[in-house]
């Protein structure tokens, strides 16, 4: 564990807390893509199946359980409790266009052809693109609430911090994991446009609005 990894995990946790609080306090999930949230649930469920087979540390176990549990809680809030506020007219991204190619890729490019390893690889590939329905929703509505922007910024920062963690681990521990690194780079690149808007608009007190 190094500082970048810790900050990355905390940023990830912060993103989830911001999202749950936003939904809970405003009693609304407007502006949030349920499709992305479903994909994140698939990501955590398939990646953390190793909870059943391997034990890394109490920290890892707790975080994994928190990520799985909160992703299902988010889906419950969006599709059951605050269903009436869900923006389904704008949340039209076809998730099978992400699920199927990433699954095929995981079958083809993985470290080991076992069920757990292919599912782990699938979760890494899927996570790298899971935010696309959310970004698609923002681009359709042309704007995002500030709180949604903070959520997206924290969520994007998490993988960017992991990139620094991987550089650190490569230099210090000679450890590297190509599948995660390449996917992490892709994931972070997808956020770049949003990061730019966040820094130039939201941090200056303006609403995140896309040019017409």
């Amino acid at each position: 564990m190094n500082i970048f990894r810790l900050l990355g995990d905390l940023s990830h946790l912060l993103a989830i807390i911001i999202l749950l609080l936003k939904i809970w306090k405003s009693r609304s999930c407007a502006g949030i893509s349920g499709k992305s949230q479903i994909l994140f649930s698939v990501v955590y469920t398939t990646r953390y199946l190793d909870l059943l087979t391997t034990h890394v540390s109490p920290y890892n176990t707790v975080m994994k359980l928190v990520f799985i549990f909160t992703s299902y809680a988010t889906i419950y809030l969006m599709y059951v409790k605050f269903k009436a506020t869900y923006d389904h007219n704008h949340d039209t991204f076809r998730i099978e266009f992400l699920l199927i190619p990433t699954f095929i890729l995981a079958l083809l490019i993985n470290h080991e052809f076992t069920v757990l390893e292919v599912l782990w690889t699938f979760s890494i590939y899927l996570e790298s693109v899971a935010i696309l329905p959310q970004l698609f929703l923002v681009s359709k509505t042309r704007e995002a609430e500030s709180i949604t922007s903070h959520y997206l910024f924290a969520l994007g920062s998490y993988r960017a911090l992991y990139l620094l963690n991987w550089v650190y681990r490569y230099v210090v521990e000679s450890h590297y994991e190509l599948i995660a690194i390449i996917s992490g780079v892709v994931q972070t690149i997808l956020y770049c446009d949003f990061f730019y808007l966040y820094i130039t608009k939201v941090l200056k007190g303006k609403k995140l609005q896309l040019p017409a």
Partner: peptide, 10 residues
């Protein structure tokens, strides 16, 4: 296949 290291990250 080469043995896979345990995934120690989240």
């Amino acid at each position: 296949a080469a043995p896979v290291e345990e995934h120690d990250e989240l």
